[in-house]
Design a protein around this nucleic acid. Structure first.
Lengths: 345, 345
DNA sequence: GTTATGTTTGCATACGTATTCATTCCGCGC
DNA sequence: GCGCGGAATGAATACGTATGCAAACATAAC
């Protein structure tokens, strides 16, 4: 066990010849303390290397200024971006991120751990949570924000992009470009993002009197998506295989492009158009040059922070469901309709 | 402020007709408590939804079971991998990760924040820290592990791969394959990884009676590396440009390959061989198929966890400098020496 | 039955801070 | 000079838990 203990406010008080209260007030914004006293305290604190103990503080104030972030994985580079912006944004406001990686099964076990820390809020960007634990968090007054997902009918706040509109945009775009056989490679089948993007695609296709050529399951995984592409395209000649594929996120779309081009020797977009979702950094890299639907990470993260910190200071836990729009970003992986501009809404 | 407060050990004690101590002991591993008492307590706790308050607990035990992780950025997908394994590994041992993103300037400001939380240890995978704050952490008995970097002559523990050996291996490999003009695209100039990889390369070249064709600064950034590649290769004919380039990490190497192939229309490896460092997931993707030196993330993370948790329970803060070996992984981005096997040590 | 040994238990206290409350201090208006 | 209001201060307490200590209890040995 750690032998040397850090200096406490009492130590500082002794050295500065003031009371412990004075020290506390010096470090509490807006408290009443004379300039001279403050000076003495700060001097003593500096010479001792004193820093307030955040745990003892939160024990009193009942605000830990810690936000729990629950993730399922970090392979998909959408999430590292989210995590970086989120952490930086929260740090700027005096909050900090505690990271929890959920097991594939679900987030219930990590939630048990989270509840031990008296976190000020929870951001869930992972498998959804059981309603039992959601109730418990609500009872404890801990706000939860579902990020990039939502649970229909649940009382939780959420921040998502307009996945349905995105799916529609992709469908309309592919139809306009004259594609005849449009396929879908799906994400995790129970994810709201997957369902909404799929529903949007179907909607656009049926509006145009079309049906989806077929779909395969990629489960939001690189390897599974590669496998799905193989099943969909191997040993098939042009009339019998898709001429366009909408992949439910970029992470999988990169896998699909890799298989199409390097295993199956197909040309993108000449033989097959590929469209993804997220606009991760790699989508813009020339090796892929992937047409995709942007998820505006910055506004999404800002919205999440606002909801979380708004609820922290508020009595009443209020529900917000924020939907951030995202543009279809046209790049080289999909054929363009004749004479179309480089970006459409 | 949160109105409803969570149930406390006293609430549970009252309901179970025992003392608060009994409740505490029920939740303390290895404490002496009768089976029947334990049962009553657990039952009461469950019905109230009680969970021990981790802050109050760490106030007493002086062990928060929180590890601070300091990162500079998450673009380079080496770090998300580290973060995921680290977080999972620590969770398994009852510890948790608090994330701090350092400003480009340095980590001193976030360290000030870290010290407010009574973290059990610090893993620095970011710009190095000032010796002043390092002293302070040592005085406070907080172990620091430098991850993927070290400060020569500093008393801190560190976990790195054998960057020098890696650099040597790359140099020898490129020479063996008959390259005549071997260039280097550097990472952050003050990073130990960059210095060691460079020193290793130089060593191998001079052993072969060669010199480095030249170098450019990529600062471990995708954009800067792309720019460096442009400067190095634009408007130059074969005798006047490198026929091989060692890029200080994969993240930059991907940028270099993108520029070489898609902007400058050069063939890799026919016109130029490219070798990276890290073996990030993308390096294995067919679009890049990047020859690179593996950094064995799992053993590195395991070593870091062992050092941190080892120091936590120990009186004496002891220094460890772990160096994990990594293989050169041969793929398609670099010409092979005649008849070489697919993996060499 | 007695003594010795080991196991449970509750009381009281400590961890380091914020905050209430009462007190003191100071300047100011009249 | 008196009283008044506001600012500054310190003593005391609370936050929720772990743990040393002594008392109570059970068990075993004889």
């Amino acid at each position: 066990m750690t032998r040397k203990s850090r200096p406490t406010s009492a130590d500082v008080a002794r050295l500065a010849n003031v009371s412990q209260s004075a020290v506390s007030r010096t470090f509490t914004l807006g408290a009443s303390v004379a300039p001279e006293t403050k000076r003495k305290v700060l001097e003593a604190a500096k010479s001792l290397g004193y820093r307030p103990n955040a745990f003892a503080r939160s024990l009193i104030t009942r605000n830990s200024r810690i936000i729990a972030v629950v993730l399922a994985y970090l392979d998909n580079s959408f999430y590292p971006r989210v995590l970086e912006l989120l952490s930086r944004g929260l740090q700027r406001k005096g909050y900090h991120v505690m990271l929890f990686l959920a097991a594939p099964g679900g987030a219930d076990d990590v939630l048990q751990e989270i509840l031990q820390y008296q976190v000020a809020g929870i951001l869930m960007a992972s498998a959804t949570l059981s309603s039992v634990l959601a109730k418990e968090c609500e009872a404890a007054g801990i706000p939860i924000v579902l990020f990039n997902r939502y649970i229909p009918g649940s009382p939780n706040s959420s921040v998502t992009s307009d996945n349905y509109a995105g799916g529609v945009a992709v469908g309309e775009f592919l139809v306009a470009a004259g594609h005849e056989r449009i396929a879908y490679i799906a994400g995790a089948s129970d994810a709201s993002t997957n369902k909404d993007r799929w529903a949007g695609l179907i909607k656009a296709l049926s509006e145009a009197g079309r049906a989806c050529w077929g779909q395969a399951d990629g489960a939001y995984s690189y390897d599974r998506a590669a496998q799905a592409a193989r099943e969909m395209f191997s040993d098939r000649a042009p009339p019998d295989r898709p001429d366009a594929v909408f992949v439910a996120n970029d992470h999988m779309a990169l896998a699909v492009m890799d298989v199409l081009r390097h295993e199956l020797r197909l040309k993108v977009p000449e033989d097959v158009s590929v469209v993804g979702y997220d606009d991760v950094p790699q989508a813009a890299w020339p090796a892929y040059d992937l047409t995709t639907v942007e998820q505006a990470v910055e506004p999404m993260v800002d919205a999440a922070i606002n909801i979380l910190l708004g609820q922290v200071s508020n009595e009443r836990v209020q529900r917000h469901n924020v939907v951030i729009p995202g543009d279809l970003v046209l790049r080289g992986s999909a054929r363009l309709p004749g004479g179309l501009a480089r970006t459409m809404p």
